[in-house]
Amino acid sequence: MYEYIRGNIADISPANIIIEAGGIGYFIHISLNSYSQLSGKKDTRLYLHQIVREDAHTLYGFADSKERELFRNLISVNGVGASTAIMMLSSLTADEIRTAVTTENVAVLKAVKGIGAKTAQRIIIDLKDKLGKLSESGHILPATDNTIQIEALSALVMLGFAKKDAEKVVSKILGEQPDSTVESVIKQALKRL
């Protein structure tokens, strides 16, 4: 298993990053919170989690080890896969997830796409004791890119939303709040879709 990767950021979007290390470009899935921390940097060190299946070897990257630990705790819950865990880490900050679990706030977890009442309750039951021990710093840096609509739409499509639905929601959000960042547009869209 890989612990981390250090290298140059060849490409980055709200849903994934390509890091060049040792002459090889690694495609790594990231959360919106990690994107916020990495946006604008030329090189980085990402903590990794690798999932090996018959048809794929998939890497998930995290700006800090505590976010990776939360991801690993989430995927340990029956019914929560890597995509759902990344969706949770993109919709809510790590502190919000931890607070929702420790205070047994099912409504906050249900607000994430793909999380129903039963899954939210299962997450709370399985992780309440574990997440009470984690400490997170929820520092998020603003995005500086001027292609907010394109990046937000791209991220939502990569997360599995229909392009037409995502376009409508992103356009509406940018119409209401034209000075929004990519992260805020995606977070609001995740709540509306």
Rank of each mutant, 00 (worst) to 15 (best):
I9G: 09
I86R: 00
Y35R: 03
S76G: 15
A56V: 13
L109W: 02
G81D: 06
K42W: 00
Y47A: 01
N73P: 00
N8G: 03
N73V: 03
E20K: 05
R53C: 10
V112Y: 02
N16I: 05
P14S: 09
R98A: 13
F62H: 04
S13L: 13
G22D: 06
S34A: 08
V101P: 04
G22C: 07
A94S: 15
L48V: 11
S76M: 11
N33F: 07
Y60N: 05
G22F: 04
R98E: 09
I115T: 01
H49S: 13
F62I: 03
G40P: 13
A63D: 13
M88L: 13
D64G: 14
S39H: 15
L59Q: 06
P14R: 12
N78R: 12
S39Q: 15
K113S: 14
A21P: 05
E104R: 04
K66H: 14
R45H: 02
I5V: 15
D11M: 02
A21F: 03
E67W: 04
K110E: 10
A56N: 14
F71A: 09
G79H: 11
K66E: 14
I86L: 12
I17Q: 00
I19E: 00
Y35C: 03
D95Y: 06
F71E: 07
I86T: 11
I5S: 00
D95Q: 09
V112Q: 04
Q50K: 12
M87C: 02
M87N: 00
D11N: 08
L38F: 06
I18Y: 00
G81E: 07
L70K: 03
V77Q: 12
E69W: 06
T58N: 06
I75K: 09
D64Q: 08
G114V: 06
F27A: 14
S83D: 14
V108D: 01
S36I: 03
T102R: 15
Y35V: 05
Y4T: 09
Y4A: 12
R53A: 10
Q37G: 06
T84N: 10
S36D: 03
A21R: 10
I30T: 08
S34R: 00
I19S: 00
E54K: 15
I17L: 09
I17N: 00
A111G: 14
I51A: 05
H29S: 12
H49L: 05
L38D: 00
A107V: 10
Y26A: 01
R6C: 01
S39C: 12
K110W: 06
I19C: 01
I18P: 02
I28F: 07
E54A: 15
N105K: 08
Q37F: 07
G22I: 08
L59P: 07
V80A: 02
H29C: 08
E54M: 14
S83N: 14
Y47P: 01
I30Y: 02
I9F: 14
I18L: 04
T93E: 01
I17H: 01
V106L: 10
N8W: 10
I115G: 02
G114H: 03
L48R: 06
I115H: 04
I115Q: 01
K113R: 13
